[in-house]
Design a protein around this nucleic acid. Structure first.
Lengths: 342, 342
DNA sequence: ATGCTGTGAGCAAACGATTGAGCACCGAGT
DNA sequence: ACTCGGTGCTCAATCGTTTGCTCACAGCAT
């Protein structure tokens, strides 16, 4: 790897001249001829500025960490694409960190943040992360922006309009004629679950429908937890005819368990999932979903991060521009005349 | 962030003394008392060596890039877990790079490698990556190890026993009594597809079964391509009664298309997928698969990488230890007496 | 006293890039 | 002739660590 001094030697000038020319420094008073020689030499040698040297000089790496609970989650693809797109535009790189690999005693967090490897942390903290680890992420000395997971104690977040998404889902089911509509939600401790719960309740209210407590479950966002929720709901004295599932992965579990229980979707049970992902069109039946602007969420999160790094501005934003939109597939239908389970 | 000189000032000694003590240098001739003072000061200040400074000094970052075609692929989770586990043991960090984000004109590759951000590249190159970009990855000046995707031109790879996996799948179907067994494979240009094809053919031979050319498709590993394959196979004059799908994602597409065509799985059509993943148990019916040692693949790949970085040893390995094992779920059964489609 | 050895520690150069300050030269103005 | 203001470039310090070398001093033998 060629260094500045290699280029300087080849062009017959000093290191500083090369540095100024190659970085387009406004203070560079260099003749056209010299400039040409330098650029030629740099090109011939394939010069690239050394990352470590710059990082040392500026105390900035132009790298931000993106912490997500679990990479397999199809939902994160869009989020990551958004983050990376914006990062690229702004000259940043993204260091992807799985929350799982961070957990044990936050030693990994210390390495990430304490050694100055990243300029900031974008964190999508899920159910599974230890509170202590979350705190050391947020208080670790570098700017942290929470992605769709606020906490009261921490400023700097970018979230989706989850309430609106839940509302869209409920309204769709109401239009189809459902009245007993359940919500399969995430843990009550998570912010996003609360917001989706609020949206669900407000839409039910608006439709003049009552919400029995047992129509809302809070097992979590994973397939297995979706199955648990489905089993619980099917066991009710008056089971629902339709379900809003707060997450597409949980919905896959709901679908599987419904099938095992012999419930036909959508004839006997309608299902709408919040978030769209490739898995949603490969289930049977293909899932009706509410698509959320995850790409835009990622973009905005990255923008907020860089704004914070460069100007110190801390903001809380709600991404609402491509509004939540219903994607009708085949998991929803008007309610069956005969109550479920009879 | 505290620096060496902060610690030195607090302990009342020179920077070099601190450096030697904190890095346990054998050449450190320092009294017990001074040593204690230094360690105390370091602890009080929460000293962590600066990443950039070390990287500059050693020309080593202790970071390796892991390039995968697509992060959502459930298969990569295990691979990544293996890579990360071993990396952690060896004091390395993993920089995850999606192949998609690398593609455009290899500018991203140049940034990754050319600027000295990583000491090596672990690459799982899929179908979708441009040949030029692959080359600049491999010839970029840092050690590269290919993960389950060899090329003749490049030394240094770690692969799975894909032939054995295909064999296990075929043998299962043969035991059930199937004779018309198809293979839904990846692109013929990929190494892994060839190895799976070989395993399939050798197992068919061993069972005394002939392989009609049209029983093997080569559309690719994604769900959509699995659907294409299923449609093609169903359209044959003599359709298969069982299918080995070379990848679990493609199998999801196969399953979906079979359902759309009205083919009952497993009554009319048996399906076995190579690779196990969480998605496999959430399909309907749950997929019978051949589980491969992906975690171990990741571990070994990382080991090979570090060996290469530190001792320059270039190896080609086959990971075979947890041998491919059949996971029987509900997508396979004995052949239906009535030929499919009649 | 002088020389020698061992111990405990500091000095200073290097890694590669950036940048304020300084130096040499040239034509022009007085 | 002498200064002045540009122009074109170089010097050298700096970021935080590492590490070969040097240095001061004590204890001991001559």
């Amino acid at each position: 790897m060629a260094t500045l001094s290699d280029v300087a030697a080849r062009a017959g000038v000093s290191i500083s001249a090369v540095s100024r020319v190659l970085s387009n420094a406004p203070s560079a008073r260099v003749s056209v001829e010299t400039r040409r020689r330098i650029q030629e030499a740099a090109a011939e040698l394939g010069y690239r500025p050394n990352f470590a040297a710059r990082a040392l000089k500026f105390s900035r790496t132009n790298v931000v960490a993106l912490v997500v609970p679990d990479l397999t989650n199809a939902i994160f693809t869009e989020l990551m694409r958004g983050v990376e797109t914006r990062a690229h535009e702004l000259g940043y790189m993204v260091l992807l960190a799985r929350a799982e690999s961070i957990e044990p005693g936050s030693e990994a967090i210390a390495r990430l943040i304490g050694e100055g490897r990243v300029d900031g942390v974008l964190a999508q903290v899920g159910d599974s992360m230890e509170e202590d680890d979350v705190r050391s992420l947020l208080d670790g000395g570098v700017p942290a922006v929470l992605v769709n997971s606020r906490r009261s104690s921490h400023l700097g977040s970018v979230i989706l309009d989850d309430a609106a998404a839940a509302r869209v889902a409920v309204e769709h089911l109401v239009r189809l004629g459902h009245t007993r509509i359940a919500l399969v939600n995430g843990l009550v401790t998570t912010d996003s679950a609360n917001r989706r719960g609020d949206g669900y309740r407000s839409a039910m209210d608006a439709a003049g429908l009552s919400v029995a407590d047992d129509l809302v479950t809070n097992f979590g966002y994973e397939p297995r937890q979706g199955r648990d929720a489905m089993r619980t709901l099917a066991g009710l004295a008056e089971p629902p005819t339709a379900i809003v599932v707060a997450n597409v992965n949980a919905a896959i579990g709901v679908l599987l368990e419904a099938r095992i229980l012999g419930l036909h979707v959508p004839e006997e049970l309608s299902i709408v999932a919040v978030h769209d992902a490739w898995t949603a069109e490969n289930t049977w039946p293909p899932l009706t979903t509410v698509r959320m602007p995850l790409f835009e969420l990622g973009r905005q999160a990255m923008s907020a991060m860089v704004e914070r790094i460069t100007s110190g501005l801390v903001t809380d934003r709600v991404v609402n521009d491509p509004a939540p939109v219903l994607v009708v597939r085949e998991s929803t239908a008007p309610p069956h005349p005969r109550p479920l389970g009879s």
